[in-house]
Nucleic acid binder design. Structure first.
Length: 268
DNA sequence: AGATATTCCTGGAGGC
DNA sequence: TGCCTCCAGGAATATC
């Protein structure tokens, strides 16, 4: 499932193919993913030149010279296939450039989204406007400010995109494990010293995953089709019953309806 | 306002 | 082998 490192890897991979190119053709093979795509998406993109690709939290942003930004979210199972030999099931949108390259947005579960937003209004666009700070630059002071007075478990708060924008279930579990914080601890009760460790862990675990090319669980592939491999280095995620480095045993609990993996011995 | 539950969707896993 | 149920997850929305 794509998390921030996978989105970053995807944006970098797409940039190699799309940056500076003119869009020759857009094929919409269905009109909706999780939500309906905007009216006239194909027409507004066709003929536009791509001027840059960026990422904000788990959103990929593709800017055009017409003042529009194509905003994509990969949801659970989304990926961009680059120069696919043939279009296959769940390729919902295909974009072709003037120089004959093709990218296809493939998303079996359709939890992803595709929107076209005026670039100068992107910061006010609701989904983007609500986002907290980027986790790659998160500081302990910022965390303290945003967690102050909160009684919800730190695990749930870190998944809240308004608190930190871009963390998903995997990296929240990994960052909490690295910083020795129990996932059930109330967010507002964590000392500044431990928040320093948490902020460092968040930045490090994401940076390492990006360096490794994004992780892979079941259905993520980088744009060129190569599988990432960071998943092999998860310390706790998906490792229920496995031995922790401290000698404890990884446990799985459910918080807010989703799995949390942690070590009860070294996370307090 | 904060916390929690529900909803969307499909493929893969596991049970029988 | 085949059919069934369950589960995974991000984020919007609803409900307490």
């Amino acid at each position: 499932m794509p998390e921030l490192p996978e989105v970053e890897t995807t944006v970098r991979g797409l940039a190699r193919v799309l940056d500076g190119q003119r869009i020759a053709r857009v094929e919409l093979r269905r009109a909706d993913l999780r939500r309906a795509m905007p009216e006239g998406l194909g027409q507004r993109l066709t003929g536009a030149r791509i001027t840059g690709l960026r990422r904000r939290a788990k959103y990929g942003l593709i800017d055009t010279d017409r003042g529009d930004t194509l905003v994509f979210h990969l949801g659970m199972s989304g990926r961009w296939r680059v120069d696919p030999s043939e279009i296959e099931k769940h390729d919902h949108v295909v974009i072709e450039t003037d120089d004959g390259r093709r990218v296809a947005l493939n998303d079996p579960r359709r939890f992803g989204s595709l929107d076209l937003v005026r670039t100068d209004r992107l910061v006010d666009w609701p989904a983007i406007a609500a986002l907290g700070p980027e986790p790659l630059e998160i500081e302990a002071g910022e965390l303290r400010q945003r967690l102050a007075g909160r009684n919800a478990p730190i695990k749930a708060l870190l998944l809240d995109q308004r608190v930190v924008a871009g963390l998903g279930n995997i990296y929240v579990c990994e960052a909490l494990h690295r910083s020795g914080i129990h996932p059930g601890r109330a967010g507002g009760s964590i000392s500044l010293k431990r928040l320093e460790r948490l902020a460092t862990a968040i930045r490090d675990v994401l940076a390492e995953a990006i360096a490794a090319g994004g992780s892979t669980l079941r259905d993520f592939a980088s744009p060129d089709g190569e599988l990432g491999y960071f998943s092999k280095t998860f310390a706790v995620y998906g490792r229920e019953g496995a031995a922790c480095a401290c000698g404890g045993r990884v446990k799985r609990i459910v918080q807010g309806g989703r799995s949390t993996f942690f070590c009860p011995r070294c996370q307090r």
